[in-house]
Design a protein around this nucleic acid. Structure first.
Length: 768
DNA sequence: GTATTATCTAAGTCT
DNA sequence: TAGATAATAC
């Protein structure tokens, strides 16, 4: 088969450029994955040893799919010898091989964000610092960005700029926490996500023999989604590829959406400085979407200042315009989406799997779900609370982690008294302090507890029993396969019976089923052929845990490749495509996020996110926003996103005005009505139009400051009868706070007592 | 040491 | 609203 025949001219050039550095700027839907896949197939076809190719993808799922595709293209299974996966998983693999060089055992644990936060909380407490000032997520974010820029704890403390910035913000102990955090991780023989990349850099920097070993082994490097790499990842690639510079990077600056976790767009913009002889290719033909979708996407992204110029075009049909809907509440938005899907399924014979509903935040999935459930539409949510982050699953996994690496303190603390065996907080605290004093891991202390009893004898005996149990499990690590050992552990640790007896409660049933699901997943894993170690070898529990440590939601295999509508965040949708795409919650402070409004750069990232969302669509895209939304238990009013005002009207089928006229004619304030009059809407002859001289964005600003009917809320008094959009008639029971914080407790005839922020509630006074 | 109840507070995207 | 933590009772 001639591989090149199936590519357009520019794609062919990119594929044929096998030697030297090249950068492929690939617009959305331009066949980026296709080029990567074909390039690897082309290399293999030309006799390059698959073992010498390293391909770094954004998800492990993408790697798997690409690998399968390459196998088909080269008609050989040798394609599986290409090293393909995410940065984190590929380099975790290399770190395990080389672990002793950097002073880690090869069974080191990978800590997730929860583990990391938990350590930081403990450090803050032990150091008697204020946990409001040193919030775990903030501290971790600071440490993370230091690591992504290859600044070690020692370097951090010696960097006057960083330490001064911390002092100025009242967080002078940040550097100390960083130091203690790293000590804690090392004692627990554990690395966090950033350490995987940081330590890879240390390995390649400080051990020239190791660097040379991998430079000799890998001759071709391909990096997907290069716009989302951070400095640490950039340096790894640069070091490894330095020998022969056969480096291909593929990316699209317009789709860079991970700056918040350290992605550096300069990696793509400055690549030609590192490689002056860089070959650059631009893929601009879109094969995915209709002209309308491509057109509106181009119009959106053109509002950003920073970008590499390109013109995305398509030969596809014009298609339908992009539909814009608005609803009164988040629940109604869910129903509307469900109804629309239902109609399209009927009218166009579409399948459930052709639909995706994309949102900015995971919390939005709830109202959408409700709508789908009511219409009996099958759906599947990706992200949110994933299977592996459920409590009961984490408890079981903690046992596995502890058996594999007993120094893993987070795991130890999680299970030492689960199921309850009478080892309470007091004993554990004493032991932790002692272990700290001796500068050894908690497990090391427990192992020598017999000769050094510092706690009550009875507690010490129970602990000894626990230690012996874990030791016994450890003996089976390489003897039993993953499933046999996992089952053995759940039975003998008491987890199984504890869960079995808790089945009476509703929650318990689900937990028990989840445990069974975990075990059956492990069983499936155990029974897979182990082609890497060869026949006769078993797949161990350690291997299973390595498999899931860097498991992402996008990697989740669809159990049954059944028919369902896909729900996910826009971030998670990167790289995917669907015939029908719904983008919901286009509201100011939600999308763009409230937290992104501080800088132009952040808003541009949100806009790129919007661009990514729109360009997932093949046939049709539906946009919607709601005028109110439940957040943390209370109703908040919302205005349409600024991105809606930016939409180019020629591509839009605006359905919002119908709703305004039919749905809520009485309660609407004039300010709200005005906000609907966005510029693409044709003024009706009998309507008063906002003066042209005032730009729409200014109009919105003034409105959000004083337009939200504070006029009425200020005169509300206890005892008044009031009307609320959602709850109806009610009586004010109490009032507290002033200005923006003014709250009321209102008893509603139909929905009972509610606490409302007057700023948002827009109560209407019925009777004084 | 454990179970129950009361109080507090969170704001986002992901490896 | 919900999950985590603190306070209280047993």
């Amino acid at each position: 088969m001639n591989l090149l025949e199936q590519l357009n001219e520019e794609q062919q050039f990119a594929v044929k450029q096998t030697e030297g550095p090249s950068m492929i700027i690939a617009g959305a839907g331009s066949g980026k994955t296709r080029v990567l896949t074909y390039k690897i197939a082309y290399l293999i076809h030309r006799g390059v040893d698959p073992f010498s190719i390293m391909a770094l993808t954004f998800t492990n799922k993408a790697a798997r799919e690409m690998q399968n595709r390459i196998q088909q293209l080269v008609e050989s299974t040798e394609a599986r010898n290409v090293w393909m996966g995410t940065f984190h998983s590929i380099f975790a693999r290399i770190l395990r091989i080389e672990s002793e060089k950097i002073g880690f055992p090869n069974n080191f644990t990978i800590y997730d964000t929860d583990d990391s936060k938990s350590i930081i909380k403990k450090i803050v407490k032990e150091q008697q610092l204020d946990d409001k000032v040193y919030k775990a997520s903030n501290v971790l974010g600071r440490i993370s960005s230091a690591k992504n820029n290859l600044i070690s704890a020692a370097e951090y403390n010696n960097n006057p700029e960083l330490t001064q910035a911390d002092k100025d913000s009242g967080r002078g102990k940040m550097g100390m926490i960083y130091t203690l955090y790293q000590e804690r991780l090392r004692k627990a023989a554990s690395m966090d996500f950033d350490d995987l990349l940081f330590n890879t850099n240390v390995l390649l920097r400080d051990f020239p023999d190791v660097l040379i070993k991998y430079q000799r082994r890998f001759k071709y490097f391909l990096v997907d989604e290069y716009q989302d790499t951070n400095h640490s990842q950039y340096l790894i690639v640069k070091r490894l590829a330095a020998q022969n510079e056969n480096l291909t990077v593929v990316g699209d600056d317009a789709q860079s959406i991970y700056a918040f976790r350290g992605a550096n767009i300069q990696n793509i913009l400055n690549l030609n400085k590192d490689y002056p002889q860089l070959n650059t290719y631009k893929l601009e033909q879109n094969y995915r979407s209709t002209k309308n979708i491509v057109g509106i996407a181009n119009a959106i992204i053109s509002q950003n200042k920073k970008q590499i110029h390109k013109t995305i075009w398509t030969e596809n049909s014009t298609g339908e315009k992009i539909t814009l809907h608005s609803t009164l509440s988040d629940n109604e938005e869910g129903s509307l989406v469900a109804r629309t899907i239902f109609d399209i399924k009927n009218n166009e014979q579409a399948k459930d799997s052709e639909f995706a509903i994309l949102y900015r935040t995971n919390a939005q999935s709830r109202s959408i779900e409700e709508g789908l459930r009511k219409m009996n539409i099958p759906y599947r949510i990706f992200g949110g609370l994933s299977f592996y982050s459920r409590k009961e699953i984490k408890d079981i996994l903690a046992y596995f982690r502890l058996v594999i690496n007993p120094h893993d303190e987070e795991a130890l603390l999680r299970v030492i008294n689960y199921p309850k065996r009478g080892i309470g907080q007091t004993s554990i605290e004493k032991l932790r302090i002692e272990a700290n004093r001796l500068n050894i891991s908690l497990w090391a202390l427990l192992e020598r507890l017999e000769s050094n009893p510092i706690i009550a004898r009875s507690a010490a005996l129970t602990i000894l029993e626990f230690v012996n149990m874990i030791r016994a499990f450890r003996l089976d690590l390489n003897i039993k396969n993953a499933y046999e050992l996992a089952e053995h552990i759940t039975k003998h640790s008491g987890i199984y019976s504890t869960m079995y007896h808790a089945k009476d409660e509703d929650e318990g049933v689900m937990r028990f089923e989840n445990m069974e699901e975990l075990l059956s997943a492990i069983k499936e894993f155990s029974e897979l052929e182990n082609d890497e170690v060869g026949a006769g070898n078993i797949r161990t529990l350690s291997e299973f845990m390595q498999d899931i440590a860097l498991h992402t939601d996008a990697d989740e295999k669809s159990k049954i490749d059944g028919e369902y509508v896909t729900l996910m965040t826009i971030h998670a949708s990167k790289g995917l495509e669907f015939p029908y795409v719904f983008i919901v919650g286009l509201e100011e402070n939600l999308f763009p996020s409230l937290l992104s409004l501080n800088s132009r750069a952040e808003i541009e990232e949100e806009r790129r996110l919007f661009y990514v969302a729109i360009t997932r669509g093949e046939k049709r895209v539906f946009l919607s926003y709601s005028e109110s939304r439940f957040k943390w238990g209370n109703l908040q009013y919302s205005e349409p996103s600024r991105f809606i005002e930016e939409l180019d009207p020629q591509y839009i089928d605006d359905q919002t005005s119908d709703r305004i006229l039919t749905a809520k004619p009485t309660i609407k304030t004039s300010a709200e009505a005005k906000s609907k009059a966005s510029f693409y809407e044709k003024p009706k002859s009998n309507e008063v139009k906002a003066p042209e001289a005032v730009p729409s964005n200014l109009r919105r600003m003034s409105q959000s400051h004083n337009g939200t009917s504070t006029d009425q809320s200020e005169s509300i008094q206890v005892g008044m009868e009031v009307f609320h959009d959602r709850f109806g008639r009610g009586k004010v029971l109490t009032l507290e706070g002033i200005g923006a914080d003014r709250k009321a407790t209102v008893f509603f005839n139909n929905s009972g007592t509610k606490n409302l922020l007057l700023k948002f509630a827009k109560l209407k006074i019925l009777k004084q």
